[in-house]
Design a protein around this nucleic acid. Structure first.
Lengths: 179, 179
DNA sequence: TGATATTTTCAGTATTTATTGAAAATATGA
DNA sequence: TCATATTTTCAATAAATACTGAAAATATCA
């Protein structure tokens, strides 16, 4: 009975985690179901099949399939084939630092870089324009460009650095330099 | 005629910027129209009225109103009242670093902190559970918790630091330490 | 090869989110 | 106070996004 209770508590906690991770993904522009599947796989002690994901989250095959593919596309999930079995299994990258690096790189590639490119074009189109308004506009665009470019570089460097030890290190430095 | 052409080029560039900023906001979980209004005000040489925003973006009064309020709520936009005029004007924070700090703090408060709280609850609920599965689950949750907590702290420190000079500084340090 | 298991696709539908537009509320000036 | 300008609200509607389920395609085994 104790075991059963413990298992209940565990699966309850896991359900809450899955829901919370889904909500968070949602707020940051990531499909809720995708984030939930990710949470599920991240906290699974073994690879799961599409059917298991369907059953666990109570979603359709199509939905499970599409989102598993998308997660695979991000590189957050790998498909595993077991010899002697037809079914395809899925497992998540569990190392939190590697997870972060994957997400950082992908969002950089998919969203920041195109935005940077557009800002650059905008800068070039107005750089040589005369008139107070044009000059002010170009100045603002360049300020944005500089900032986004720097943020992009920082993200790049951090996500390329080896260990996750970079984060505590950064923290220490920031603590020293300020208050 | 040259002036007219220059003005056309400018407003064309600005339209593109507004569209791009809207798309980027959208990808990061921010209402497209809200991001567009922000882009518009950010690149305006003077405060604008609700009617001007409506006309420029071709959106309804209700839509303009709601999103201007929301931007005000974020602290990215201020309302300006001119003496002798009934209309309310709106102007954006134009300093890019301050903009970043505002967004960082707000997203921290609205999304990261609740997630952290939920993760902590999840940790506590499973910390004392026995069994291989429960232990593995708790370990994973704690790894996430540690990471999100550290990222949160870094964001906090960076966004509290005075000048925008912190970013180039970080960059320099990261360049030295790696490759 | 045929039987069976599994994956993929996608038109149709549901759900969520964003927008409109007009009525109600509020503020201002005469 | 009344007339007018302006802001606010919100039910109705539109648009965007996500999901379903079943048919088609593909893979595997005997």
């Amino acid at each position: 009975m104790i075991d059963k209770e413990a298992a209940d508590l565990l699966s309850q906690a896991r359900d809450e985690f899955v829901a919370q991770w889904g909500a968070m993904g949602n707020a940051w522009g990531i499909n809720r179901t995708m984030a939930q599947i990710h949470a599920l796989l991240m906290t699974s002690d073994r690879p799961l099949t599409t059917d298991e994901v369907m059953a666990d989250l109570k979603i359709s095959r199509g939905n499970a399939h599409q989102n598993l593919r998308e997660l695979t596309g991000w590189g957050l999930v790998r498909s595993v084939i077991r010899k002697g079995e037809r079914k395809e299994y899925f497992e998540a990258e569990k190392d939190v630092w590697r997870m972060f690096c994957i997400v950082a790189r992908e969002r950089k590639r998919r969203e920041i870089e195109p935005a940077l490119k557009a800002l650059k074009a905008c800068d070039e189109q107005t750089r040589s324009l005369r008139g107070e308004k044009a000059v002010a506009f170009n100045r603002q665009i360049r300020a944005l460009l500089e900032f986004v470019g720097q943020a992009d570089s920082v993200l790049d460097r951090v996500s390329r650095s080896e260990g996750s030890s970079i984060l505590p290190l950064l923290l220490k430095m920031l603590t020293k330099s300020k208050n």
